[in-house]
Computed example of a mutant assay.
Amino acid sequence: MASTQRVAMSEGVTWTVLGEDFRVAEPVEQYLEYLRSRDCSPNTVKSYARALALWWTFLERRAQAWDAVGITELGTFVGQLRRGEVAEEVVVLHGRTRMADATVANRARAVMGFYHYHAARGVEVAGRLYETVRARPGGYLPFLEHVARRTGRRSSVVKIRVRTKPVPVLLPAQMAVIRDAEASWDAAGAVWSGELRYRLLWTLLEETGLRLGEALGLRHCDWKTGTGTTAQVEVVPREDHPHGLRAKSGHRRVFIGSALDRLYGDWVWALCEAGADVELDDWDNAYIFCNLRRGPRFAPLRPESVYKHLGVRKKDVPGLPPHMTPHWYRHTHATALLLSGVPMHVVSRRLGHADIQTTINTYAHVTEDAELRACADWQKITRTWGSRHEG
Results as ranks from 00 to 15, higher is better:
residue 1 M to H: 07
residue 8 A to V: 14
residue 16 T to V: 04
residue 19 G to Y: 02
residue 27 P to T: 07
residue 33 E to V: 12
residue 39 D to R: 10
residue 48 Y to V: 05
residue 59 L to T: 02
residue 59 L to Q: 01
residue 65 A to D: 12
residue 66 W to A: 04
residue 79 G to M: 09
residue 80 Q to E: 10
residue 80 Q to R: 08
residue 83 R to A: 10
residue 89 E to M: 13
residue 91 V to I: 10
residue 91 V to R: 09
residue 91 V to M: 09
residue 95 G to V: 07
residue 97 T to C: 11
residue 98 R to N: 12
residue 99 M to K: 08
residue 104 V to S: 00
residue 105 A to N: 08
residue 105 A to M: 07
residue 107 R to C: 04
residue 109 R to F: 10
residue 113 G to M: 04
residue 118 H to F: 01
residue 118 H to L: 06
residue 120 A to N: 14
residue 122 G to N: 08
residue 124 E to W: 12
residue 126 A to S: 08
residue 127 G to Y: 06
residue 127 G to A: 02
residue 128 R to W: 11
residue 128 R to D: 13
residue 135 A to Q: 13
residue 137 P to R: 09
residue 141 L to E: 15
residue 141 L to Q: 15
residue 142 P to R: 14
residue 143 F to Q: 15
residue 150 R to V: 13
residue 154 R to D: 09
residue 155 S to E: 15
residue 155 S to R: 14
residue 155 S to M: 13
residue 166 P to N: 01
residue 167 V to Y: 01
residue 170 L to P: 04
residue 172 P to S: 06
residue 172 P to E: 00
residue 179 R to G: 09
residue 187 A to S: 11
residue 195 E to N: 15
residue 195 E to S: 15
residue 196 L to P: 06
residue 204 L to R: 00
residue 208 T to Q: 03
residue 209 G to V: 00
residue 210 L to E: 07
residue 211 R to T: 01
residue 212 L to E: 08
residue 217 G to L: 10
residue 219 R to K: 11
residue 224 K to Y: 11
residue 227 T to R: 15
residue 233 V to I: 15
residue 241 H to I: 04
residue 243 H to C: 05
residue 244 G to R: 04
residue 245 L to K: 04
residue 252 R to F: 06
residue 252 R to Q: 08
residue 257 G to M: 08
residue 263 L to E: 00
residue 269 W to R: 15
residue 272 C to R: 15
residue 278 V to D: 13
residue 282 D to R: 05
residue 285 N to E: 14
residue 288 I to E: 04
residue 291 N to G: 01
residue 292 L to Q: 08
residue 294 R to A: 13
residue 294 R to F: 13
residue 304 E to H: 10
residue 305 S to Y: 10
residue 310 L to C: 07
residue 311 G to C: 02
residue 316 D to R: 15
residue 318 P to Y: 00
residue 318 P to I: 02
residue 323 H to D: 15
residue 330 R to Q: 01
residue 333 H to S: 06
residue 338 L to F: 05
residue 338 L to W: 03
residue 338 L to G: 03
residue 342 V to C: 00
residue 345 H to W: 11
residue 352 G to C: 03
residue 354 A to M: 04
residue 355 D to T: 00
residue 361 N to Y: 08
residue 362 T to N: 00
residue 373 R to S: 09
residue 374 A to M: 08
residue 381 I to P: 06
residue 382 T to P: 10
